[in-house]
Design a protein around this nucleic acid. Sequence first.
DNA 1: GTCTATATACAGATAGAC
DNA 2: GTCTATCTGTATATAGAC
Lengths: 212, 212
Amino acid sequence: MPDEGQLEIQEAREKILATATDLFAKQGYDSTSLSQVAREAKVSKALIFWHFDSKDELYRSALRRTLEPYFINVNELTGLGEREQVERLIDQFYDFIHTNVYSVRFFLSLTLRVEQSPDEGLSRVLELYRSFRNSLADIIDSGRRRGVFCSDVDASREAGLIMAALGGILIQQFMSDPSSNEPAALIEHLKQTLFQRLTANGAEGTHAGRPE
Amino acid sequence: MPDEGQLEIQEAREKILATATDLFAKQGYDSTSLSQVAREAKVSKALIFWHFDSKDELYRSALRRTLEPYFINVNELTGLGEREQVERLIDQFYDFIHTNVYSVRFFLSLTLRVEQSPDEGLSRVLELYRSFRNSLADIIDSGRRRGVFCSDVDASREAGLIMAALGGILIQQFMSDPSSNEPAALIEHLKQTLFQRLTANGAEGTHAGRPE
DNA sequence: GTCTATATACAGATAGAC
DNA sequence: GTCTATCTGTATATAGAC
């Protein structure tokens, strides 16, 4: 078994990958040169090419690594009520954003590029986003059918609006100084108004009756 | 008056500026080379340097030009009621986004860069965003004081949530194929639920009374 | 004002010694 | 595996003719 020896000697590759992941996330693909990666990882450019065939492959590896923590997020919402499940999901989203600020910023800026590349990694993120949205819709609809929420609730639209608000709170954090409009308060307000609406069984009954 | 002759001869400069504005908006700063600008504007690279001292100055000029349409947006909401004013503002925002997709995308990606440059143009956009948010808050608060909206409405938070939703709807358009979740429906739903909440005078009175 | 030609720097990538 | 040295392309920017 002569292979055992090379298991942990790959610290250089690790260093390169970590540095590249960081720089790509912070600066984007074009603005990050392999010279810079080599300099900050304290290796030679040639070594980068020994481990990764091209800048593109290095980028893809970095993407894959950035993406990893995105999949622990499978929701274990066992015996909770619908309202608690929705709250839990919203909090999970918010927490996730905060522990992954850099990569979220990364993927968001990827989304904005007009490049034609379908970008395997990016599509996984979008897929994740949609599945998150669908989970919300399912839970809300389940609550509607079980009578926990109003009968006239459009689960799909509610989920869409929640996602929009969450996404908007996200970019607000990128735009303003983090101190300004504290997103935690917005999240609270979002939840508060959401359930106020979902459970507003009194009022005028089918009060939302406008000419659709 | 020997100066009059040179008034419209600067079509080359115009061409350069227009091309650069377009390319910067579509591809960003780094991915746009002056060679490309020169090629597409059908001038020589040297001419670009005659008109603009550096790539950076060209970029700033392009930014300024991109920014221009952002200021016609002064709201003329004369004799409208508060509800109509809010609706009008939301629609204005939405329309504006749609007629300026490219530059909005541009500024959004600018926001995401970690570059240290305060970027004169970008700060104007942020300022605009805040003033828009403040207008919303003012109108809502005015409506609250005049009894059009509930007395327990927190105008600032409502405005923040509206802006978050609008921003979220915006990035949803960048993320998904434009056909998927049609933002127009989301805007409708936003408005509907918003006013449902702002004018929900019946229900349980100070129903929102949770331990703050 | 507009061009051609060129200087200079740095990008991604390769060859080959150790 | 890691390095130095080098190739090749292209970037920003300048010099100087017209």
